[in-house]
Every structure is written in structure tokens, then in C-alpha cells.
Design a protein around this nucleic acid. Structure first.
Length: 142
DNA sequence: AACCTGATTGTTCGC
DNA sequence: GCGAACAATCAGGTT
């Protein structure tokens, strides 16, 4: 399947409007505006890449830039099947649940952290704690 | 010297 | 519903 160019659809990649702004790219510096602000949980791709980066570095200790790993990782990522990604996705889902609590606390704090302990949480996204595999994929147990 | 860019995809939020 | 931006990484490049 040729999907043509993936970057064409991507907006952030082609344009560098992401970090250009006032400080979006600065993840760890000083501007700690919201110390309680939970950072976005790494997606399955990032989770997979966490291990992939190390492996890539081991095989390519002289690698140049992160872009190389990104491409290699993305290429392989697409090469992987859902079953392979399953464990990563499962983990991502889990983080989503945890992040959900974080974001809720963060929102709560922003709303009532200042002294107003009363706030209404209208947007209530229920999270399923059920760890069930929809498909009959086998879960690898460690 | 310090900030910014590059490249991947996914996820999440805002309007 | 869609769009926009950000999540890690790491060394080089630019100001």
C-alpha cells in the first residue's frame, strides 16, 4: 500500500510551528509555570521507541541525529503487526488511564487549587479499568 | 553560551 | 469532528 507521503498530511512535521513559539520546545528548563501539569504520556510508538532507541544506539553508536532513529523506528513500527504493537498499545492505554487521573487532578487544582474547592466536573470521561484483550491475542506474560 | 532544529507517530485537548 | 501542538531524544547548528 502505497500511501504516498505521510508527511504531506502531517502538519507539525512539515512546518516547524511546534517549538517556534514561546517555549514549547523547552521541556526541562526553567519556565516551570505549572509544576503540576502532567506531561503527555508517551504513545505506544514512544514506548516502543524507548527500547528501540537503545537498540539503535547500540547498533549505531555513531548515529548522528535523532531523526535517524525516528525514521528507523517509524519504519519498523509500521512493519510491526498489531500483535507486536499490542503490548505497546496496551501499555499506552494504561498510561492513558493514569494520565486521566493526573489531568483530572491538574484540572481540579487549577479550578479549585487556589481556594475554591468547589468546582464542577462536567466532563467526566469514564475509564475502563478492565484489562481485557478484545481480540484473542495472546498476552505474553513476561 | 544558550536556544533551536530535525524526524518518527500517537495521543490528547480545544473550539 | 478537525486541527493543532506536544510527547522523547541528542547532537549539531545558529545566533
Amino acid at each position: 500500500m502505497k500511501g504516498g507521503k505521510t508527511k504531506s498530511d502531517s502538519i507539525q512535521t512539515g512546518n516547524k510551528l511546534k517549538s517556534k513559539g514561546a517555549g514549547v520546545g523547552k521541556r526541562a528548563k526553567k519556565a516551570v509555570k505549572d509544576p503540576n501539569k502532567p506531561k503527555r504520556p508517551p504513545s505506544a510508538f514512544f514506548v516502543f521507541m524507548e527500547g528501540f532507541r537503545k537498540q539503535y544506539k547500540e547498533e549505531n553508536p555513531d548515529n548522528k541525529s535523532v531523526a535517524a532513529v525516528g525514521k528507523a523506528g517509524g519504519a519498523k513500527w509500521k512493519s510491526m503487526t498489531d500483535a507486536e504493537k499490542a503490548p505497546y498499545v496496551q501499555k499506552a492505554e494504561k498510561r492513558k488511564t493514569e494520565y486521566n487521573k493526573n489531568i483530572q487532578a491538574y484540572n481540579l487544582k487549577l479550578a479549585g487549587g487556589g481556594g475554591n474547592d468547589d468546582e464542577s466536573d462536567k466532563s467526566k470521561s469514564e475509564v475502563n479499568d478492565d484489562e481485557e484483550v478484545a481480540s484473542g491475542e495472546e498476552e505474553d506474560e513476561d
